[in-house]
C-alpha cells in the first residue's frame, strides 16, 4: 500500500514538474519583460525631477495629475473618443456580422475580406490617408465644393470639433472589421434552429436580432468592449499622425502626453510613469464596471 502511494505521488510530481517546465520559459520571459518593468515603472512614478536627477517624492506625482490642465484635457479627449466611438463601432460591427452571417448572402468570402481589409493596413498609413482626405486641398473639400455644399475649402483639422470627428471616423474605419470577426465567430456558435423557432413563432428579423442575437452574444460583446476601451485609452498613432494633438490640446491623447513628457519637453520620467499608471487604473476600473454590468443576469 505504502509503496503504491509513494509511487503515485512521484508520478504526480513528475507530471506537475513536466508542466512547470513547459510553462517556465514563457513565465520567465513575461516576468522579465513585462512584470519587472511594470514594478520598476511604479517605483519610478514615485519620484520626480528632470532627466536622471530624480528624487523620491511619494505620491506627489499622483496628486499633481489633478492639477495638470494638459493631463485633464487629454483624459477628456480620450473619454469623448470612448463614449462616441466604441458604441458606434461595436454596433456597426454587430450589424455587419449579422449580414455576413446570413445564409442567403452570396460571395460571402469577398465581403468578409472587404470588411476585414482595413484592419490589415498599418495604423500610420490609414491615418495618413485620412489626413490627406481632409486636408485643405483633399478629396473631402474637392467633393463638397463640387457639390456646392461648401463655398470655400474648410480647414477640417484645424477645427477642434471636426478634428475629433475625423479621428473618431478613422479609428472606426480601421477597427470595425476587426471586431466584426469576433462577432462572426460568436454568431456561428448560435444554433440556427433558435432562429427558425423564432421565425415560426412569428418574430420579425428585428425582434430576433434584439431578443436572440444580442443576449447570446453577450460574452463576445463584453470581450470586444473591454478590448476597444483599452485600445482607445492608449490611443496614440492615429492622433499623432493626423493632428499631432492639435489644434491646441483639442485632440491630445494620454499616450501622446506621456510621449511629450518624456521626449519633447524636459524629460520628466517619474511624472510620465505616473500618467501611465493613471491609464492602467482607468482601464482596470472600466473593465471592472463592464464585467459587473455584463454579468448582471
Amino acid at each position: 500500500m505504502r509503496t503504491i502511494m509513494t509511487g503515485k505521488r512521484t508520478l504526480e510530481m513528475k507530471y506537475k514538474s513536466a508542466g512547470w517546465r513547459f510553462v517556465m520559459p514563457a513565465a520567465i520571459l513575461i516576468f522579465a519583460l513585462c512584470f519587472y518593468p511594470m514594478v520598476q515603472a511604479f517605483f519610478l512614478s514615485l519620484q520626480s525631477g528632470l532627466a536622471n536627477n530624480l528624487h523620491f517624492t511619494g505620491l506627489r506625482n499622483y496628486i499633481r495629475l489633478f492639477q495638470d490642465d494638459q493631463f485633464i484635457a487629454s483624459v477628456k479627449n480620450v473619454f469623448i473618443y470612448l463614449v462616441f466611438q466604441v458604441p458606434v463601432m461595436l454596433f456597426l460591427a454587430l450589424v455587419l456580422a449579422s449580414i455576413l452571417n446570413d445564409k442567403k448572402l452570396k460571395y460571402k468570402g469577398i465581403f468578409r475580406t472587404m470588411v476585414f481589409l482595413p484592419c490589415a493596413t498599418a495604423l500610420v498609413s490609414s491615418a495618413l490617408i485620412f489626413k490627406s482626405l481632409f486636408s485643405l486641398d483633399g478629396l473631402a473639400n474637392t467633393w463638397l465644393l463640387g457639390l456646392g455644399i461648401l463655398s470655400e475649402p474648410k480647414n477640417w483639422l484645424q477645427d477642434p470639433v471636426w478634428a475629433k470627428i475625423i479621428i473618431i471616423f478613422t479609428i472606426t474605419w480601421r477597427w470595425t472589421g476587426y471586431n466584426t470577426v469576433f462577432f462572426l465567430a460568436g454568431l456561428q456558435n448560435i444554433d440556427t434552429s433558435v432562429y427558425e423557432a423564432a421565425r415560426i413563432d412569428g418574430a420579425s428579423p428585428m425582434q430576433s436580432f434584439f431578443k436572440i442575437t444580442l443576449p447570446l452574444l453577450k460574452p463576445v460583446i463584453l470581450l470586444t468592449a473591454i478590448m476597444s476601451t483599452n485600445g482607445t485609452l492608449q490611443l496614440f498613432d492615429e492622433v499623432q499622425n493626423i493632428t499631432g494633438g492639435g489644434p491646441g490640446n483639442a485632440t491630445l491623447t494620454i499616450s501622446q502626453y506621456i510621449y511629450k513628457l518624456s521626449f519633447v519637453l524636459n524629460p520628466q520620467f517619474g511624472y510620465a510613469a505616473a500618467v501611465s499608471y493613471a491609464i492602467l487604473i482607468m482601464v482596470a476600473i472600466l473593465a471592472f464596471i463592464q464585467i459587473k454590468v455584463g454579468d448582471k443576469q
Binding site: G248, N249, V264
Partner: peptide
C-alpha cells in the same frame, strides 16, 4: 531657456483658445 518647449507649447495652446 531650458523650458523653451514648454513655453512654446503653452503659448500655442493659448493662441488656439483665442481663435476659439
Amino acid at each position: 531657456g531650458v523650458f523653451n518647449y514648454e513655453a512654446r507649447g503653452a503659448v500655442g495652446v493659448a493662441v488656439s483658445k483665442i481663435i476659439q
